[in-house]
Amino acid sequence: MARHGSLLSRSGLTPGQLAMHAFLLLCAFAMLFPFYWMLLTAFRPSQEVFSPTFHWLPQTFVGLDNFRAAFGKAPLLRFMLNGAVICAGILAVQLLTAIPCAYALAKYEFRGRGLLFALVLFALCVPVQVPALPLYMTLAFTGTLDSYFALMLPFFLSVFAIFLFRQVFRSFPDDVIHAARLDGMGEMEILWRIVVPSAGPAIAAFAVFSVTAHWNDLYWPLVVVTSPELAPPPLGMMYFNDPDIGSSFGTLMAAATLLTAPLTVLFLFAQRHFVQGVTMTGVK
């Protein structure tokens, strides 16, 4: 027993550490309980939902019945496809516009640079709800409401990306840029072939950040989209939650599971970039 104890403490598991683990496990349980409950409900029959007693596991396992019902009720795959299209479109335009602008701010001196950067800093503070009304009106007058373009328009410019990449590019050594100029590369080529590849981690972190934000966004889709076939996941979820469709908790939870799964899986695979993304957003 004593031997066992010394082994534990040698591996760093002192009583203090064990107590912290116990407490943190409790916290983790609380944090993850909604996910557990979602899965649990998605896999049990509706009657069990209303049973007055609490059960950790489904009393009767219904397999994928709830999922099948969910697919039958609304075009879930369509919602996810919409989410993917919107996120990809937004990200592509964001990167294509923000990277050159950030590079100009970081490495060139030009008249108006200070003003442009000040505007970027101002824009960093402005949430999408602020320009929403005029943008909505413009889309309404041009008849482009209820389209992918309308869903993406307010997010094409990411001032956050400009800000983040400017920071990253500023620390790129001038000597390498000078070497590339001497080697005969043009400025555009230097940017995309020399500077951008070295900013890979920052771009990955931003991509993760951008995709998370726009996959999960509800406000703007709610404003501009009326046809269900254009709805991204959160809006689709809202249709589900509509009392008219009837609140079968089982199918609702199955739908929730499906719609939140892509990002959760992405997160589990790209944790490092997520955490890096948050750290870059927050601290720098």
Partner: peptide, 13 residues
Amino acid sequence: VAMVFQSYALYPH
């Protein structure tokens, strides 16, 4: 003209 830099300035990727 060609230049050799103190930091070598090699293209990292």
